[in-house]
Design a protein around this nucleic acid. Sequence first.
RNA 1: GUGGGUAUAGUUCAGUUGGCAGAGCGCCAGAUUGUGGCUCUGGAUGUCGUGGGUUCAAGUCCCACUACUCACCCCA
Length: 415
Amino acid sequence: MINIPKGTKDVVPDAAYKWHYLEDVVRKTAAEFGFKEIRTPTFEHTELFLRGVGETTDIVNKEMYTFTDKGDRSITLKPEGTAGVARAYIENCLGDMPQPVKMYYLTPVFRYERPQAGRLREHHQFGVELYGSASPYADAEVMLVAKTLFDKLGLTEPVLNINSIGCPECRKKYNAALKEYLAGNIDKMCASCRERFDKNPLRILDCKEPGCKAITASAPKTLEYLCDDCRAHFEKLQSILSSAGVEFRVNPSVVRGLDYYTGTVFEFISSAIGAQGTVCGGGRYNNLVSEVGGKPTPAVGFGMGLERLIMILENLNLYLGEPETPTIYIAPTSEAEAEAAFSVVGELRKKGVSAECDIMGRSLKAQMKYAGKRGYAFVAVMGADEINSGKIKIKRMSDGVETECAISDIAEVLR
RNA sequence: GUGGGUAUAGUUCAGUUGGCAGAGCGCCAGAUUGUGGCUCUGGAUGUCGUGGGUUCAAGUCCCACUACUCACCCCA
């Protein structure tokens, strides 16, 4: 037997309704905020992610599904949603549309990682992209999309953590200050932090080693090195969030692992699903479009992990939609009525009523059992009497009450 | 890439100092031939993850491998 590849998941028929429910709420929420769906390919030229996501990131270095196609092109399965949208924005001249351009996507993403709770090699993301506005209102609006979605799902628990890592100018000054602070202690820190010291000192702040945490606790904060513009932006953002009634926590250790972020970064963190608690992460990436070959365009957005979101909803016993079962089951009493039942079901479907009948050749009793277990709202037994009289009793399964009507009127009676 | 845990029926698991491979759930069929969820009866499904070793005897002990799982790194 060939089993499922590591880090992937099947959604079986009886569980698909959860995804339908979630996607439905997601689409409605995005639409309320004026975001329209954008669909980009599952794979892109590898070059896009090298330039967009950044060559020093773990995602690009060790996690991409990259292969050479038959035309000798280097192709990569998308490891995140933003780079492809940036490419599409440029390629479809969306910069010439009325600004801002507000887009959302629902997409699978692929990263070669060791799976664990809340981490897969293929997972699905809902993401939002707002292009063309550098205003902190844009940052707030994007955060509000996530917040509103959580509210609609009955989810109050994920905490919004925000930070600003500054523009490239602030970052230059900050990196120098951070390295100066760490220089005296670096030999006491973990191996990976020592490695990060040269490559990307900012990421040291993210380390969870107790020893490193103790050292970084009093390290300089990016917030202390923001230029006037970045500081004003971050302060205005907080004021907007406060007056919008959005609770948040300024958390200097929120440092994103993708190179394209500038300025505002944020995460919604849940404590309901174990170690991988970030259910939504995003920020501003004002240099991404130009990095990928377009003209400079301010942008802000987030990615949200849908598997993680479903895990949270399940762990907190929150509503996840209703199983999808046809409305009525027609049960022929024997083979003699099977064809008649089959055609009645066909008529019902033409009228828009979801209906099924026996195709297993089962006894009436077994059919009733099946119908009860599968959760049909109505069952109608069809035997010789019904065929002769043209009348049939529709049984409501919740309480057993039966209503008689003409076979040709079933659809109307159910309405 | 690093570390811990686990592996027995479709599924969740039990299996005593090593002594005939089991239970619940699910599935199928019945319980006087046209009405479900409850109950009762019966039935099907096993390379005990794979390969070695110890032993009269291994699901059980030892070794290796593989898979799964949790955690680290990193991310959603």
